[in-house]
Structures are given as C-alpha cells and as structure tokens.
Design a protein around this nucleic acid. Structure first.
Lengths: 337, 337
DNA sequence: CTTAGCACTCAACATACCTAAGTGCTAAGT
DNA sequence: ACTTAGCACTTAGGTATGTTGAGTGCTAAG
C-alpha cells in the first residue's frame, strides 16, 4: 500500500466529489481514473485514508467524501493552482480597466470575482492604517462648523463635519491645517495619533481647544479604531450551492451581514507561499461558517487589505485559488498605477 | 350569502394562513373565529371567493390559501394598520437616536426595520436632487490634481479627484470656487447643470478649460445622472421564510444585488392615503420577485427617497405596514432635526 | 502487496395501504 | 332565500413492506 498512491486516491476522490457532488465509491474511481489497480486495492487505500480522518462515509454503504482535514491535505500537498483560461484573463482586464474611482474599482472587482468563481466574493477596503497621509483639508462651513477631510495615498478620502467648541476664523483654520499637515504629511496613518497629539500640544493656547477637537476627528478619520467596510457580491450564488447540499444558507448570510465577523476572519488569514490562504470548514471558528470555506489573499501595496471568496467546503480549490490570486494581482496593479 | 361576511371570511383566511403557514379549511375557520355560522356555510362562501379569484386551493382536498388578488383585497379593504407596541416604539427611538452621520443613520434604520419585521429591509439614500447646495470646496492636491467636494443640505458629502487639463495655482482655484459658490450656494441640486454651465461661460478665458472640467465633475457629484445607492439588511431573514415555502431565494437575492431593479421598483411605488404602498406578488413585474411582496413608503422632507421591506407574499401586512410607516416617520424627523 | 469473490449493510426507490382533512353537492330545515 | 346536516368523493401524507443497487469489509488465494 504505497504512500504516493494513497494521496493519488485522495486527489481523485476530492476531484470527483467536487465535480459530481456525490459520495464516490471505489468502483467508480478505478473507472474514471487510470490508477492501475483494482477496486479492492482502492478499498484498502480508502480504509487507510478513513483511518487517518481524511475521508468519511455518510453511511455504511455509500461512497466516501473528503473531510475538512482531507480538503486541507488536498490543498496543501496535492493540488496545483490551475492557471486561468485566456478568456478569463481577458475578462479581468477588460472589465476592470473601465473603472474610474476606488469605489467603482472595488465594486467591479467583487462582481467579477463572484462571476469567475460562482461564489460569494468579498473585498475589504484598502486599510488606511497601512497608507500614508496625502493631504488634510479643513473647510469652514459655518463659524463653528468645520469639514475635516483626510486624503490617503491609497486614494481613499474620508470626511466628517466637526463642531468646534468656539467660533473660529478662516485664518485660524488655515494655520491649524498648516500645523497638522507639516506634522503628518507623508507619514503613515498608523502613526497619526502620536503625531497629532504632539501637534496639538504645540499650538498656541488660544487655539488649543479647537485643535484638540480637530485632531481627534482626524484620528478617527484615519480609521484606526473603526474596522473598515467591505463590499460583497454574488450572494445569490449561495442559493445554488445550498440547493444541492446542507450548507444552511441562513447562518452564512448572517455572517456576511455581520461585517465584523468577516473582517476579522479575513484579517486573520495569513497567506502562504503560493500567495493564497485557505480556511476550510471548521477551521473557521465562527459557528455559522463551519460548512464553508474561504479563499483569500492580500492586495495593494503591502497586501494588507484582503480579497477573497466564500463557498461550500466542496469547492474547486485549484480554480478558485487561481481566480482569487489573478484578480488580486490585477487589482494591485490598478491601484498602484 | 352576505357580502360583509364573505369579506370577513377572507380576512380570517388571510390571518390564519399568515399565522399557520398552512392552507386553511372551513372547519378550522369556524373553530378559530366567531363567525356564527356552520362550516357548510363557510364552504359556500369560500366557493364564491374562489370564483372571484381571491383564494385558491393547492389541491382538491386541501384548505384554501389567498391569491395575490386576495391579499390585495385584504390590504386595500379589510385590514387596519396595526399600531406598534410601545416596546417597539421605544426601540426605534433609542436605537436611532444614537446615530451620528447620515451613513450611520441609514445603516441603523435598515437594521432596525429588518429586525422589527423579520424581513429584508431596504432604504434608498436621500435623493440629492431634492436637496440644495450647502458648500463647494476645491482642494489642490498636486499641480494638476484637484479634489472637488460637494456638500448638500441633507448632510451628504460627495467628493472626487479631478485631473485638470493644465496646471493651476491656489489663487485660480480659490477664484473658481468663489464663482461656483456664488452661482449655486443654496440652490437646488437639480438646477446645478444650467447654473454651472452659465458660471463656466462667465469665467475669464484663461481659466475656462479648468472651470469646464471642474463644473462637469460637480455636476456628476450632484448625482443627477447616476442612480443613487441603497442599503439593505436582513437578507438572512429570507432563508427562514424560504425554508417553509417556495419563495425560491436565488432570484430574490439576485434582484437585491442588482440594485437597479430594486431602485426602479421602489421609485415606482406611489403611496396611497394611508401613507404606505404595497406591491404584492405578480404586481412586481420583475421576474424574480413574483412570489414576494414589497411594502414601502417615502421619507425625508419631500418623501422622495423610499424605505421599505421585502418578504414573501404571505406576510403580516398590517404589522409590517405599521413598522415601515413608523420607522419612516422617525427617520424623517431625525433628518429634519 | 494485490485481487477476486462473497456476504452484508443500507439509502433510495417503489408499492400498497390507510388515514385525516377537506371539498362539493343534495336534501331537509328555518 | 339562506343555512345546515349528511354523505360520497378526492387526495396529500404517513407507515409498513418489499426490492434494488451501490458500496463496503473480509478472507483466501495469487
């Protein structure tokens, strides 16, 4: 009972099961694959695989289906990332090149990815924390109302209306802006809090109060505390997968709506050498996703923001991983250029 | 066979069916309601109602369920909008009063509404078209890059980065801002296009090109052409309803994701005297929603933007209508104050 | 280590049957 | 002119019972 063949059997099981959505038995296996041995031998191998917890039988006399652990093995040791078809590559280019602003780019990206994979696609907004300050603007709307605008090098713009403790003039505002700018321009957003408090402390006492309020707002705009938003597309794809199999759709939809959960999940995922990270079934500790898998990767200058797809554990990992990686790369290129 | 009693029977059928999710028969009806007649009489009434197309029987020997037309009759002529419980009223206040900016208000509103109704809640962003210009700002990011910001009286802020045809200095920008502002400040957004082109024409020739580009961008920011966004919550509720009944979830999710469809649908809905508008089943001409009902109403100063919920045709209309109306009113009040 | 053979298990399908709910209709009652 | 009791009829759904077929594990031989 050779080790390599056993892995080969596992691969065959995973592939067939992903394709047919039905438990796969020893006989069907030898028919569809050139394994060079009889079904009885395969049965022995399968018994061993089951022993190791890589596959399982739904009931005594059905074929086997991969367990989460089996998929994990498949993803880590067996499968090779499948290259995209040229048509798919072309689709990525033509579809994404038309986008104009950041919102549009991300929107198109998720739609594209969900179509490519027939799954739910998710993308985090680029994390401001990893970006730097490009510009700060303070606009006087009324004697005590100021619009504070923070523009990051990612192209993301955040703004908010701030109410000052006392009236302020245009000149005051202009001076404060100068102070803030010289203290932070080009610096990483993560470093904003210290820099801003220092800058506020250096202000003339008369303007200290206003400066404190504004500095505070700018900090919040940087989004250090606030978890950022994400965009998703293709939820309808869940319905299809669900129809065939007991991926109960409710909890998944809840998880997707509870953006906090997804954000945490995505952020936690460390990508491996191949540049894609996979979470399978129970590896997602959040309850609603134990029958789902997530394939994600980072994008952008430092690959901190994540993009990925979510689908049933029974998914075509090689293709999905390829799609996620390709889209992420192209997205990075667009954002860089 | 009295007319009023027949309506009473219809009401009873609708109420029981909404409650039990099962076809309701004549015997069960006389038991659960004080109708003062025997089941045989009810049977006669039911035959008449079926004749009129208000109810139907799934199969020969099952009870009756209301048809779309039956629900329509129920909503229009029989039901009274049910007042909310005081707990629910309180929930609305406490939950919405914590919100700060517009995004947050709308986000909280849909979440609340979806919880209140156990259905999918949808809200359009307030239409900028009905709002006026509060402020315009032009920020020089680089010699040829300008951030154009448009702030509406609704509190909504739109911004975009614009590339100029030629370099421009701070003074030029300041002057252009002044021209734009004096031409548009306080004016309705719908009137922006004419006002802006006039303002551009009045510019000194040297700055005409830059002004044209900027004016163009501001127009787009006003969102006249672009259909606006919407926010939704509670998609997971679909899963529950679907479980019990053949509201196939896929098409509905698609419709929700194709925001254009929902936007059109909501915008088309004209509210009646009671201040709520209802679309039932096949009245939604879009294919995916023929088994769904939409309850919506306008909100905001001119009630142009819409808020509503979407659920299976078998829904508790009186309660849902009450919730939608109450939330819309409170939302209007918040936006006004 | 592989393989043929075989007894065994069990979900899934089909068949038949029964039951309970519900109907429509007719004829009698008010 | 309506209401009602009674009854024959229909039918989805549940239960009991086979039958089939895919698939397994094991044993013994190659």
């Amino acid at each position: 009972m050779s080790e390599p063949r056993r892995l080969e059997v596992l691969r065959a099981i995973v592939e067939d099961y992903v394709h047919s959505r039905e438990p796969v038995g020893s006989k069907a296996l030898v028919e569809r694959h050139q394994l060079g041995v009889s079904s009885a031998t395969i049965r022995n191998d399968m018994a061993a695989l089951e022993e190791e917890g890589l596959i399982a039988a739904p009931h005594t006399s059905a074929g086997r289906i991969p367990t989460d652990k089996g998929y994990r093995m498949f993803v880590d040791r067996i499968s090779a990332v499948k290259p995209l078809s040229s048509a798919e590559r072309r689709a990525i280019h033509t579809f994404l090149d038309q986008a104009d602003d950041l919102d549009d780019v991300l929107d198109r990206t998720v739609r594209l990815l969900s179509q490519l994979t027939n799954q739910v696609a998710v993308v985090q907004y680029p994390q401001l924390g990893s970006a730097a300050v490009r510009h700060i603007e303070l606009v006087l709307l009324a004697p005590r109302q100021v619009l504070a605008v923070l523009i990051a090098t990612t192209g993301k713009v955040e703004q908010r209306v701030v109410t000052l403790p006392a009236d302020a003039g245009e000149e005051t505002l202009l001076r404060l802006r100068g102070i803030f700018l010289s203290a932070t321009k080009g610096k990483l957003l993560v470093t904003l809090p210290q820099r801003l408090t220092a800058a506020v402390a250096a202000c003339p006492p008369a303007e200290r109060a206003a400066a404190a309020v504004l500095g505070n707002s700018l900090e919040q705009l940087a989004g250090i505390n606030r978890e950022d938003r994400m965009v998703l597309a293709g939820t309808a794809n869940l319905a299809r997968s669900t129809g065939d199999f007991p991926l109960s759709i409710g909890p998944v939809l809840e998880a997707l709506e509870e953006q906090v959960v997804m954000m945490r999940l995505l952020t936690e995922m460390e990508q491996d050498a191949r540049g894609v990270s996979v979470r399978i079934g129970h590896e997602n500790r959040y309850g609603g996703l134990t029958e789902a898998s997530v394939v994600a990767t980072g994008y952008g200058p430092d690959e901190l923001a994540k993009i990925g797809v979510l689908g049933p554990t029974r998914m075509d990992y090689p293709t999905t991983m390829a799609a996620v990686r390709a889209v992420a790369r192209y997205l990075s290129r667009i954002l860089a250029g």
